[in-house]
Design a protein around this nucleic acid. Structure first.
Length: 488
RNA sequence: CGGGGUAUAGCGUAGUCCGGUUAACGCGCCUGCUUUGGGAGCAGGAGAUCGGGAGUUCAAAUCUCUCUACCCCGACCA
């Protein structure tokens, strides 16, 4: 055995970094905190992206593109927003380099910009500066725009996919006539995020509201999906913000109502990022490698031919041609590994890359008119007749998709505890997991618990039942039932 | 950004404490032949100014300083 991964339970963090690199998902870029997404990882992203893109198009949203560069002054228009992002902005101050005998290339001081430009950490400000031009009357509303883009946040500590200085995401920015409509939009999108996570990524999530201290800088309310990773820590997988009239006021975006009154526009924004790939890895991965849910897997079935000579190879190609053709027609993403590596090598390689199904075809199978199928999620080996393969593969892919979700949900549920005393709370936090408990609603309590245990309130779940609960920390009657966890 | 650790060929390591020939090994890579049902074999070959820079010395992978990246633990975040 070579090229082995570290065991998850020995060093989960190291396991993560290694699998990302070994499975060919990504590599480090030359600038600190940057990431190269390699073809296998990018196909995964494209599949996630396409799934969500069609969801939002079905609900009336359209794509557009706004610039990477934002005037520095824009960021200052919304007070909380500056506060939230000022500390992590990349700033363009000059526009030219020049040659220097001593130091190679240096900044040309003559090219200093009058007003410095920031690289977007998120696009609310540019977008609302444009919406001001586009919106006059209620007839211009709603605006339901999304963009697929890169953003830059200068993070101190970075990790591939989970937190990089530059990342890819989608950001939706909508403008509405009424408060209710904006709220509905925020919640409708959250529901799409839940579907994306659970039905496509097979990642079970809690849905809920962020507390004030955890909400987006500039939002009235932030709704989120929160998932549990394989090390029992929480990952915020998507957020949907009800921005109220904050950005409309900051950018002076008013519209005329039907009865000819002037009113500020109501706004939402929402995003998911390449972090979702991290969620997939950390939710489903095991000591062998990745396990990618079939719906988003770049390769859904890999075929490993086993041939002893050229005649075998010819026979296998012939045997496979009709199978491959029909599977492709059925929309199955298929790859045949004709490399000269040994079968054992290929088995390990593709298991590490998380391909849901493997088909083995050798002389023995051809003789019996059969193929071998192996499920990545269970390691189960099956022998199927050639005729049965076509109907079995789509069914198996569906089963694997469901099973990954069930396994992840089971894991999350047994590691989600309801507690009523702070002693219990602390002892559970030592071993990890989610805790559901009462909270008195004060930021002080929240902060104190964070200082003690490193756990934060991931969300106030929609299905909370605070009625008979007391705050786990203060003992006061609970204002909310919340979910605590250590987060990524 | 603070504390601790690591950095030697694409990957994993030995050598570093105690400075001294041509920097060693396994895997991978290239060529050829033989192979192929759980990480194939033989033969030949390429590949490292020892993370970067500065210093001490007749001599530095080895000692000193500094910078950078990664890992673990804290503060910030999607």
């Amino acid at each position: 055995m070579k090229n082995k991964l570290p065991k998850q339970n020995i060093n989960f963090s190291e396991w993560y970094t290694q699998i990302v690199k070994k499975a060919g998902l990504a590599d480090y870029g030359p600038v600190k905190g940057t990431m190269v997404i390699k073809p296998y990882g990018f196909q995964l992203w494209e599949n996630i992206k396409d799934s969500f893109d069609s969801m939002i198009k079905k609900t009336g949203h359209v794509n557009a593109y706004f610039p990477l560069f934002i005037p520095k002054s824009f960021l200052a228009k919304e007070a909380e927003h500056v506060e939230g992002f000022a500390k992590e902005c990349a700033i363009v101050t000059h526009t030219r380099l020049k040659n220097d005998k001593k130091n190679g290339v240096v900044i040309d001081p003559k090219s200093k910009l009058e007003e410095e430009i920031i690289v977007r950490p998120t696009s609310e400000t540019v977008i609302w500066s444009m919406y001001k031009k586009w919106i006059q009357s209620y007839r211009d509303l709603p605006i339901l725009i999304n963009q697929w883009a890169n953003v830059v946040r200068w993070e101190m500590k970075t990790r591939l996919f989970l937190r990089t200085s530059e990342f890819l995401w989608q950001e939706g920015h909508t403008a509405h006539e009424t408060k209710e409509e904006a709220k509905k939009e925020t919640l409708d999108i959250l529901e799409l995020y839940r579907q994306l996570a659970e039905d496509y990524l097979a990642v079970p999530v809690f849905t809920g509201v962020k507390t004030d201290s955890e909400k987006f800088a500039g939002a009235e309310k932030t709704y989120c999906i929160e998932a549990m990773m394989g090390d029992k820590r929480a990952l915020q997988a998507g957020t949907s913000h009800n921005l109220g009239q904050n950005f409309a006021k900051a950018f002076d975006v008013k519209f005329q109502t039907k009865d000819n009154k002037e009113e500020f526009v109501w706004a939402t924004s929402w995003g998911v990022s390449t972090r979702l790939i991290g969620a997939v890895i950390l939710t489903h991965g095991d000591d062998i490698g990745l396990r990618i849910p079939p719906k988003i897997a770049p390769v859904q079935i890999v075929i490993v031919p086993i041939s002893k000579n050229d005649d075998d190879e010819k026979a296998i190609k012939l045997f496979l041609s009709s199978i491959i053709k029909s599977l492709k027609m059925a929309g199955v993403r298929i790859h045949v590994d004709w490399t000269n590596n040994s079968p054992g090598y290929k088995f390990n390689e593709w298991e590490m890359k998380g391909v849901p199904l493997r088909m083995e075809v050798g002389p023995r199978d051809i003789e019996n008119n059969k193929v071998v199928l192996v499920r990545r999620d269970l390691g189960e080996k099956m022998f199927l007749s050639k005729q049965d393969v076509l109907s079995a593969v789509p069914k198996l892919l569906e089963e694997i998709q469901n099973n990954l979700f069930i396994q992840a949900k089971k894991f999350r549920d047994i590691n989600t505890h309801s507690v009523s005393t702070y002693d219990e709370f602390c002892s559970i936090m030592k071993t990890g997991g989610f805790i559901r408990c009462g909270w008195d609603g004060s930021s002080k309590t929240e902060l104190k618990i964070k200082e003690d245990t490193k756990a934060t309130i991931r969300c106030i779940p929609f299905d909370e039942k605070p009625e008979d609960l007391c705050c786990v920390f203060s003992g006061k009657p609970a204002k909310h039932e919340v979910i605590f966890a250590k987060a990524y």
